[in-house]
């Protein structure tokens, strides 16, 4: 009876699953959601897709454009989703949807950087200086010194090569994990770690050369 009971349970499970069809859209993975979206053209599915991906797309765009350009990053996110809406039926399922989405985001952010000629002056010094300092330092001299040190570090981060700068922004500013960065930038985890290490080494050398003590 035991085996028969298991068999009946299994049969009920199969019938129930088949009856449910694809199930609720919220339980679908992104790939299946995109397939369903292309098939049905249902706007609610697209909204669900946006809801799922918008924060990561924004983090990627913001990390590429840098602090002070959050509004630009938001524009990039909007452009990306309009583009995805327009071209969703051209997406080939041979790659992951997220990979395709992040690639479009990177290309849009690069275009935005080029257009705005922000590559060499991401944020003005005044913007960096105006960023609030952490906590309150009683001694005004110490506070000024800490502020200068902070500004120096941020300025040198801006001058890092593109990939290193984006990785540093994602890791230190946005707080993404190494695995998340690897996925956003289509790199492996070791490459991300290597970029971080090289960026720190470069910053240390440059700050040392400038006579800025960071210790």
């Amino acid at each position: 009876m035991g085996d028969g009971g298991v068999l009946i349970d299994r049969l009920i499970q199969v019938v129930t699953t088949a009856g449910r069809g694809l199930g609720s859209p919220s339980t679908l993975d992104n790939g299946s959601l995109v397939r369903e979206l292309v098939r049905s053209g249902d706007d609610d599915l697209f909204q669900l897709l946006v809801q799922r991906c918008r924060d990561r797309v924004f983090r990627l765009a913001a990390s590429m454009l840098g602090p002070g350009n959050e509004a630009e990053a938001e524009d990039v996110v909007q452009e990306v989703f309009v583009l995805v809406y327009r071209k969703i039926d051209t997406f080939h399922h041979d790659s992951d949807f997220s990979t395709w989405l992040f690639r479009i985001t990177r290309n849009r952010a690069i275009d935005r950087l080029r257009t705005a000629r922000m590559r060499h002056h991401h944020v003005g010094d005044e913007v960096l200086r105006s960023m609030p300092s952490r906590g309150k330092i009683g001694d005004p001299e110490l506070a000024a010194l800490a502020g200068e040190r902070r500004t120096a570090v941020l300025q040198h981060v801006q001058r890092l090569p593109d990939q290193q700068r984006t990785v540093v922004y994602l890791y230190y500013w946005i707080g993404s994990g190494v695995a998340d960065i690897a996925e956003l930038l289509e790199m492996n985890v070791q490459t991300v770690k290597s970029h971080l290490h090289r960026a720190r080494r470069r910053l240390a050398l440059e700050l040392e050369a400038e006579g800025s003590s960071h210790a």
């Binding site: 960023m131 609030p132 952490r134 902070r150 941020l154 981060v157 540093v168 500013w173």
Partner: peptide, 9 residues
């Protein structure tokens, strides 16, 4: 140092 610099941002 980098963490401190970004902590306030």
């Amino acid at each position: 140092a980098i963490r401190d610099a970004f902590a306030a941002t």
